[in-house]
C-alpha cells in the first residue's frame, strides 16, 4: 500500500500505530470560486462539503 503524503509532518510517526485514531490533515485546499455559493453551502472547501440526503421511505 502506498504511504500517504504528509509533507508537513516529520517522520517520527512512521506508520500509524494501533490503539489510536487518525484524521488525515486537509492538504493544499482548494476554495469554492463562488464564495456566496460556498456560504450558502456552509463551507468554502468543496472537499469538506458533505450534504445529507437520507430519507426514511417505506420499510
Amino acid at each position: 500500500m502506498q504511504r500517504p503524503q504528509r509533507p508537513f509532518m516529520n517522520d517520527m510517526m512512521g506508520n500509524f500505530p494501533i490503539a489510536m485514531a487518525y484524521v488525515p490533515m486537509q492538504q493544499a485546499p482548494v476554495l469554492y470560486e463562488n464564495l456566496e455559493e460556498a456560504f450558502n453551502r456552509g463551507t468554502i472547501f468543496p472537499e469538506l462539503d458533505k450534504p445529507f440526503k437520507g430519507r426514511r421511505g417505506k420499510r
Binding site: 509532518m9 485514531a21 487518525y22 484524521v23 488525515p24 490533515m25 486537509q26 453551502r41 456552509g42 463551507t43 472547501f45 469538506l48 462539503d49 458533505k50 450534504p51
Partner: peptide, 15 residues
C-alpha cells in the same frame, strides 16, 4: 455542514 468542518478541525488538532 459546520459540524462536518469542525469535526475535521478537531481531528487535525489531534494530529
Amino acid at each position: 455542514q459546520r459540524e462536518v468542518v469542525h469535526f475535521q478541525r478537531f481531528g487535525e488538532a489531534l494530529r
